[in-house]
Design a protein around this nucleic acid. Sequence first.
DNA 1: CGCCTCTTGTTATACTATAACATCCGCGCT
DNA 2: AGCGCGGATGTTATAGTATAACAAGAGGCG
Lengths: 154, 154
Amino acid sequence: MSHAFDRHDHGTCIASALSAAEAACAGRGMQLTPLRRRTLEILLESHVALGAYDVLARLEAEGFGSKPPVAYRALGFLVENGFAHRIEGLSAYVACARPGSPHDPSFLVCRSCRRVAEEEIQAPLAPEAEAEGFAIERTVVEAQGLCPACRGRA
Amino acid sequence: MSHAFDRHDHGTCIASALSAAEAACAGRGMQLTPLRRRTLEILLESHVALGAYDVLARLEAEGFGSKPPVAYRALGFLVENGFAHRIEGLSAYVACARPGSPHDPSFLVCRSCRRVAEEEIQAPLAPEAEAEGFAIERTVVEAQGLCPACRGRA
DNA sequence: CGCCTCTTGTTATACTATAACATCCGCGCT
DNA sequence: AGCGCGGATGTTATAGTATAACAAGAGGCG
Ligand SMILES: [Zn+2]
Ligand SMILES: [Zn+2]
Ligand SMILES: [Zn+2]
Ligand SMILES: [Zn+2]
């Protein structure tokens, strides 16, 4: 269970994600450049999913480029390397809550505050794919609804 | 198991989906107008997911309006009423393979030919949501990969 | 130095989706 | 018939998401 909806020491989320990203980059010969690192830090500031243009606005305000490819490329790098995930149902991006270990993520996504909890589950369509001869490469699992805080505010 | 990747009598797919839509509309006081019916028929022609603008081009060629809201509204009607589903990972739409009964659909989506098989599974995040106090309203489950035919062509 | 690769930046464009307003049509009511 | 109404379709205009193609700089290495 993730801590996105709990009170927790968020500083350790940030620190462990950054050090995991640094270690993974070093190990794979990838570069965690200032732009990429800052993009990851922006996502890590909260467990809320951000749109690419939200990220871009933040980057631009801090002196990076202002055009969409700047954000899309940095986000693409983070997603490809498993440091962030794309939430398909929101067309948005969130920092990975389990950096370091490769995993097939699934999410609880609050439609009100866009906070995202990352969960670990078994691939839910594996038997069906097996029966049909379908080769699964990636499975999107996103439960949309209301988080505890937003239920309370209803 | 759906028949999207099998040889099957596709005429019965079409006929049963259309009659289920007609029955459901009659029962709920909704109107399956010519535009909506034709949109559903277009989706039913194959088990391939179509983008809204693909559908719009077909509609325009047949004398309907040519502007995006024409397609988006018809698709919205079909999705809201359970006659079609949106595939989030493709931003595309596919006819429902189990019309009539309400269900929480899940999909096997071929990234090569965009064919979609609809499956029925248990809500995969229910225990996690329960533990966190998260109220699930809808769950997107889309396995992306290669269908049997496209695997063979690799 | 000259070449190569990677990263960042730009311009321009493509693709996806909705807000707001206009028109038309069928229906119930007077 | 004349009117008001809701729903469906149509339009214009705009918002939101994403990528292709090209230019320029940094660093490694012959
Ligand atoms: Zn945290
Ligand atoms: Zn919330
Ligand atoms: Zn069929
Ligand atoms: Zn295929």
